[in-house]
């Protein structure tokens, strides 16, 4: 296939098999990791289904229940489906960050993939940031799908404060990815990662209002939920959807969680 004799440089005595690569157009380690991880990410259809399809599918099934399409006085005249679009949007981000990402990284650790990488000059942050980027972008695309399907199929108005909505969503994604990265950093193996992921996942679903919309939660509960990244995100999204600029306390809460947890994840994430 390759004519090895042509690759030998005249200045070296090394055999052809040990010829140096040409130095032009070589990707950086970080870019190469991102490229490889993207390919691998696209080779996991089950993972892609859960992140991309499941949130919108769940919303659509609920949207087909007639009661979800009737105006509800507890929700200030909104329909349940209107309150459910932000829920689906956040589920997309949470599934990608907390359910999908940590087991990928812990499986790498368990199988010895990270061990092999640790004997090369590549840094752990290259892999961590590639995984956070891939899952974050996919989660956001899935969120976008939920918004579009909500608009087209169930006539849910697009957010009035689009810029605020986008900002909230980005902050929420950052906070959720940080949680996922921390889980991957701290979990000893993929069993633990799945376990911790679920322990975080169900309270997270509660906080974003899967069972009771945040707008109708009792005050004490609502106050507690507001301090979680999930509750803060749900509240801020609802405000932005209704055309108000979200409370700074919500955005601040999200930013604080994202910063602290990312720092912790980088501090604790190790090859071994």
């Amino acid at each position: 296939m390759t004519d090895t004799s042509t690759t030998e440089s005249p200045t070296t005595t090394a055999p052809a098999a040990l010829a140096p690569a040409s130095s032009d157009r070589r990707p950086t380690a970080r870019a190469a990791v991102l490229r490889a991880e993207t390919r691998l990410f696209l080779r996991e259809p089950a993972n892609l289904f859960w992140i991309c399809v499941f949130p919108t599918l769940l919303m659509s099934i609920l949207g087909c229940v007639p009661a979800f399409r009737e105006a509800d006085e507890d929700l200030g005249g909104q329909r349940l489906i209107d309150a459910y679009v932000p829920v689906a949007v956040l589920i997309a981000v949470i599934v990608a960050s907390i359910q999908a990402m940590p087991p990928i990284l812990t499986t790498y650790r368990e199988m010895g993939i990270l061990r092999r990488m640790s004997t090369t000059p590549v840094r752990p942050s290259s892999l961590l940031s590639a995984q956070m980027g891939l899952n974050g972008v996919t989660g956001l695309l899935s969120a976008l799908l939920a918004l579009v399907v909500g608009r087209l199929a169930f006539d849910v108005a697009l957010p009035d404060q689009l810029a605020a909505y986008a900002l909230t969503l980005l902050l929420a994604t950052a906070a959720c990815l940080a949680i996922g990265a921390l889980v991957a950093a701290l979990a000893g193996n993929s069993k633990h990662a799945l376990g911790i992921g679920s322990v975080v996942f169900f309270p997270a679903l509660f906080c974003i209002g899967v069972w009771i919309p945040v707008q109708t939660m009792p005050e004490v509960l609502a106050n507690i939920v507001e301090f979680t990244p999930f509750g803060a995100a749900a509240n801020a999204l609802n405000q932005a959807a209704a055309g108000d600029w979200p409370d700074w306390s919500h955005l601040g809460t999200l930013a604080a969680w994202a910063t602290v947890l990312t720092a912790a994840a980088i501090r604790w994430f190790r090859w071994k």
């Binding site: 390759t2 098999a17 690569a21 190469a32 490889a36």
Partner: peptide, 15 residues
């Protein structure tokens, strides 16, 4: 290709 990219002066992987 991936492992080549980790190093400053890698070998040509094809031969």
């Amino acid at each position: 290709e991936l492992y080549s990219a980790f190093y400053p002066r890698p070998l040509d992987w094809k031969p």
